[in-house]
């Protein structure tokens, strides 16, 4: 019999331990809370699936989930095409390449809470650059602390500013890997710019685009820091996304049981949609 080398497990062990402590153990705690009720002092009462039923039936959860999907759909609809367009228009050779790359990477280097704070100050109607310009110079009534539409627009613009670069850089990496011969052949074959995009660039970008969409979906679906710092979920509940709502329930109201059940539902949704995206986008590769 051939001996299978088991040494590999040894090298994976540290990672397994790390994952166990920062993911599995906390998650089991959450599962623990989600099926029990506690009033402190480590006294627990069995609740079964009551919290799950309560969350799934709650209108507050439905509203937050709806806002979350709307937010994610909007930023994907903007960032993916915009990222592709910017990547296509970036130079592929010469002096401007590093300049463009560094400029593109800059927003991503800024910590998330700083981004939130920056945009908060930026949009203040009386002292923020954008807020002042809109209200006093252009005469547009813009106050995102009072107007839900303005708040939404600001949150989305902020996310686009912060994260489109990720899509750009990934697509750019896909584009530069296309050999010149493809473009030359297309020129000679008389292909239009659209055909070049559709039949050469898009197929070659597809793999990185899949990764980009997945990353952007997961990040935006779990987004917390930036909108929380920017709007605090307001005005009213208008920008209270799932994660913000979750924190409100868990730490604001200290309803640990429902919050735990909600986290698990939240996690299941994220996992399911990611799987769906991945399956749909790679479905054709096997053929």
């Amino acid at each position: 019999m051939r001996k299978v080398n088991q040494k590999g497990w040894f090298f994976v062990l540290p990672v397994l331990i790390l994952v166990a402590f920062n993911a599995l153990v906390p998650m089991m705690t959450v599962v623990n809370y989600s099926v029990q009720e506690t009033f402190g002092d480590n006294v627990f009462f069995w609740q079964g699936l009551d919290w799950f039923q309560q969350i799934l039936r709650s209108e507050r959860f439905h509203a937050a989930l709806g806002r979350q999907f709307l937010f994610t759909a909007m930023i994907l609809a903007i960032e993916v095409p915009l990222g592709v367009i910017i990547a296509l228009s970036m130079p592929r050779k010469g002096f401007w390449v590093p300049v463009c790359l560094v400029t593109m990477a800059l927003p991503m280097l800024i910590p998330w809470n700083v981004v939130g704070a920056m945009w908060n100050i930026f949009t203040l109607p009386d002292i923020g650059l954008l807020g002042y310009l809109m209200n006093h110079t252009l005469g547009i009534d813009y106050n995102m602390t009072q107007d839900p539409v303005a708040a939404w627009i600001t949150v989305i613009v902020m996310d686009v500013w912060h994260w489109t670069s990720l899509v750009v850089l990934l697509c750019y990496a896909g584009l530069v890997s296309i050999p010149d011969a493809y473009y030359q052949a297309a020129k000679i074959d008389g292909a239009s710019n659209w055909s070049v995009f559709r039949y050469i660039q898009l197929p070659k970008m597809k793999q990185v685009l899949t990764i980009a969409v997945l990353l952007r979906f997961m990040d935006s679906f779990n987004i917390y820091t930036e909108p929380f710092v920017l709007t605090g979920g307001g005005p009213g509940n208008s920008t209270t996304l799932l994660s913000i709502d979750l924190v409100k329930i868990a730490l604001g109201q200290f309803d640990l049981g429902p919050a735990a059940a909600m986290s698990l539902i939240y996690f299941a949704i994220t996992l399911f949609v990611s799987w769906l995206f991945y399956t749909l986008m790679t479905r054709n590769d096997a053929k």
């Binding site: 052949a185 000679i188 074959d189 197929p203 070659k204």
Partner: peptide
Amino acid sequence: PDRRNIAQVFQFPVIYDT
């Protein structure tokens, strides 16, 4: 190139994958 009415075959096969 596209107005010269020519065809060219390259060193590495150029194929429209999809």
